[in-house]
């Protein structure tokens, strides 16, 4: 029983990272209709920026954190300006492939700037733990869960109550009509990219606390995509629930299936493939996810 409890705790703290990344996917997708394959790479860049300021330039952690978020937002706006401004109304294939290309450009650029070594960021909460019963919780994972819930509330309010949020939803629904209604579509898209990248940076920095800063941390982004699909690509609620669910599924799969062997087939580390199996199953059974609505296509 204690073990199950521990798996749940660990699963939720990994899941919170997926939630944050998935939130970034959903934010960008909801407002621009673009599925950003480079979300994990943006998270990686955010973590590296934080590392540069916190560890290399020795600034206070909180300051470095905020600078990383700022740079993340600027980078997001810049990406929109450079790549997606002229892609409005282009087919899905083109926009998807641009984000895929962007992902490899970002990895390559990060490799040139920061190199391929593995680094650690020292945060004030690193290595601090809290014991509840027999289970050890790290401050880092508590803060991650807390921040992802906070962001969830903030974005729920934002999309339902604020003018900008409603305008974003409108733009995603139909950019042409939104433009006719007096919404500045370009500005909305830029804001969405800035916010989406900022959230990615937050996710990257927390991920770096749970592990390290390194180029390959961007792979987490692809798994977070499974979380976004599971929740429904357009649902903020779905992103959070989907992320936590993927974290839990991975945790249980890793504890009970990894290392098993069936007739010449070694299960190996099931954790790495669990998210993709979930993704395929969801796509086959309920392509619009748990909280998503099926879109009716008009001719």
């Amino acid at each position: 029983m204690e073990r199950v409890f521990e798996i749940i705790i660990n699963g939720l703290s990994t899941g919170a990272i997926y939630s944050l990344l998935a939130l970034g996917f959903v934010l960008i997708f909801k407002s621009t209709g673009i599925l950003n394959f480079a979300q994990g790479e943006l998270a990686m860049v955010g973590a590296f920026v934080c590392f540069t300021f916190a560890s290399q330039l020795q600034l206070p952690y909180l300051l470095a954190f905020l600078i990383a978020l700022g740079i993340g937002a600027v980078l997001g706006a810049f990406i929109d300006l450079l790549f997606f401004r002229r892609m409005v109304g282009e087919p899905v294939f083109a926009t998807i492939m641009i984000t895929v290309g962007l992902a490899s450009i970002l990895t390559s650029a990060a490799g040139i700037i920061w190199g391929h070594d593995v680094h650690a960021i020292r945060a004030p909460f690193t290595d601090k733990t809290l014991e509840v019963g027999n289970v050890v919780l790290t401050h880092g994972s508590l803060i991650t869960v807390g921040v992802s819930l906070l962001l969830f509330v903030v974005f729920m309010l934002f999309f339902n109550r604020s003018l900008l949020g409603v305008a974003m939803r409108g733009t995603a629904e139909d950019p042409d009509t939104a433009g006719l209604m007096g919404i500045n579509v370009n500005k909305i898209h830029m804001a969405a990219w800035a916010i989406g990248t900022l959230v990615a940076a937050v996710a990257g920095i927390f991920l770096a606390d749970q592990s390290f800063v390194r180029l390959s941390m961007s792979h987490t982004g692809i798994k977070a995509m499974a979380a976004a699909i599971l929740g429904g690509m357009e649902s903020i609620r779905g992103a959070v629930v989907g992320g936590l669910a993927i974290g839990l599924i991975e945790g249980f799969a890793a504890n009970y299936l990894s290392g098993a062997e069936v007739g010449g087939f070694h299960f190996g580390d099931v954790k790495e493939v669990a998210a993709f199996v979930v993704m395929i199953v969801v796509l086959m059974i309920r392509p619009h996810g748990i909280f998503g609505r099926e879109k009716v296509e008009r001719v």
């Binding site: 599925l35 899905v92 294939f93 998807i96 692809i222 995509m225 499974a226 699909i229 690509m233 010449g264 087939f265 070694h266 299960f267 190996g268 790495e272 493939v273 993709f276 199996v277 993704m279 395929i280 796509l283 392509p287």
Partner: peptide
Amino acid sequence: LKGLYLALGTLAFGFIVDYILFHWD
């Protein structure tokens, strides 16, 4: 599936094939 959902499905398929090749005797 259409558009991006298909992209995701085929992506996941690629990872699963890779996983099977890695783990099958």
